[in-house]
């Protein structure tokens, strides 16, 4: 117990000094190496829910990073449903286990913030990935793409099919999901400024329920007979809106885009009920998350541009909002969908 405790104290102090930014680089380096020469850092990641392809792909990337870095033990556990309370239990158990870095993709950022404070008080480095908890004490947020990039990517992909004008609606998922709401806000503003002839007629929330998303999309098409576009804002509603268009026999009349995982979207991209899935390389996001976790565990500061791996050679870091950015959003169509195995 004692050596681990000493190491934790050294680590915390080092991190505190590094973060307050009032030391010379040399001091931090020596402290880190003397305190924990060949220590393995436990980096734990708590996804919103376990067992969905999205987070499993992140897990695969994290494992890959742990193997490449050598000094990282990657831990991964999430709730079986996207439930804030169940997620909090898992976070508490990692605090009990005294991991070195705790990274969370919070289901509810507001209720996660005090828990992250608790973790920090226990001497654990905290970070967020995929979804931010902006009001928390997290040291870094590993962002897959900016809200701007995703919102504009979705809007451009859809409006390209709709010919730059017409009415469309959004089928979102969790009503309190920070990232989804941020993207929707961008879509609303961007549509207004760039496509003045287009209009978002409604935003509805289906939870994580595919069947409900499909039914809501059907209802939206009925309520607005002149609707020509639908956006599925998350991985369960993206195939849902495409299925609704297919079932209604409106392929080519109503266009859909969505935030879907490649394998789930493949049949819809192929039959054209979905025009494009906007996503990012999820495995790389997991890789970057694990790397960032190891980085803060060792008290190493981020540079403005970071060379993480051969695929992630220039990851930008912005000091103002303490955010690592994976890169631009990726459009997945029937042409490149086979490149992704998740």
């Amino acid at each position: 117990m004692r050596p681990r405790f000493t190491a934790a104290v050294v680590l915390t102090t080092t991190a505190a000094i590094a973060l307050s930014g009032c030391t010379k680089k040399n001091d931090t380096d020596t402290a880190a190496s003397s305190g924990s020469g060949d220590k393995t850092y436990k980096v734990a990641f708590v996804p919103k829910l376990q067992g969905v392809p999205y987070f499993e792909a992140m897990n695969a990337g994290g494992k890959e990073a742990a193997a490449a870095l050598g000094n990282v033990e990657w831990l991964y556990q999430g709730p079986t449903q996207a439930d804030a309370a169940a997620q909090a239990d898992i976070v508490r158990s990692y605090i009990q286990q005294k991991v070195d870095t705790l990274i969370v993709a919070p289901n509810d950022p507001d209720s996660m913030a005090p828990l992250l404070q608790q973790a920090k008080d226990a001497g654990i480095h905290v970070a967020t990935a995929d979804t931010d908890a902006p009001t928390s004490v997290r040291e870094v947020f590993v962002n897959q793409a900016t809200a701007q990039g995703i919102g504009e990517g979705l809007t451009d992909a859809l409006l390209k099919e709709m010919g730059g004008k017409g009415k469309y609606a959004i089928v979102s998922c969790g009503q309190t999901a920070e990232n989804l709401n941020a993207w929707i806000k961008v879509q609303q503003e961007y549509t207004k400024t760039k496509y003045p002839e287009a209009e978002i007629v409604d935003v509805v929330y289906a939870g994580e329920d595919q069947a409900k998303a499909t039914q809501m999309a059907t209802d939206l098409m009925n309520a607005h007979p002149d609707l020509t576009g639908l956006v599925g804002e998350c991985t369960s509603s993206a195939p849902g809106v495409a299925q609704a268009v297919k079932d209604a026999g409106k392929i080519g009349k109503v266009f859909t885009v969505g935030l879907g995982t490649p394998q789930a979207m493949k049949p819809y991209l192929q039959d054209k009920s979905s025009s494009a899935a906007i996503l990012w390389d999820v495995e790389n996001l997991g890789y970057l998350t694990a790397w960032a976790g190891a980085q803060i565990a060792q008290g190493k500061p981020f540079a403005a541009t970071n060379n993480v791996s051969s695929e992630l050679s220039a990851v930008a870091y912005t000091e103002a909002d303490k955010m690592l950015l994976l890169g631009p959003a990726l459009a997945i169509t029937d042409e490149n969908v086979d490149k992704f195995n998740y």
């Binding site: 449903q81 996207a82 994580e208 329920d209 595919q210 069947a211 499909t214 195939p239 789930a264 049949p267």
Partner: peptide, 17 residues
């Protein structure tokens, strides 16, 4: 019925609630 009404992907949220 649930499978038929869903999409071509089934995820673990099926049946929840």
């Amino acid at each position: 019925f649930v499978i038929a009404q869903g999409t071509s992907t089934l995820d673990q949220s099926v049946g929840a609630g």
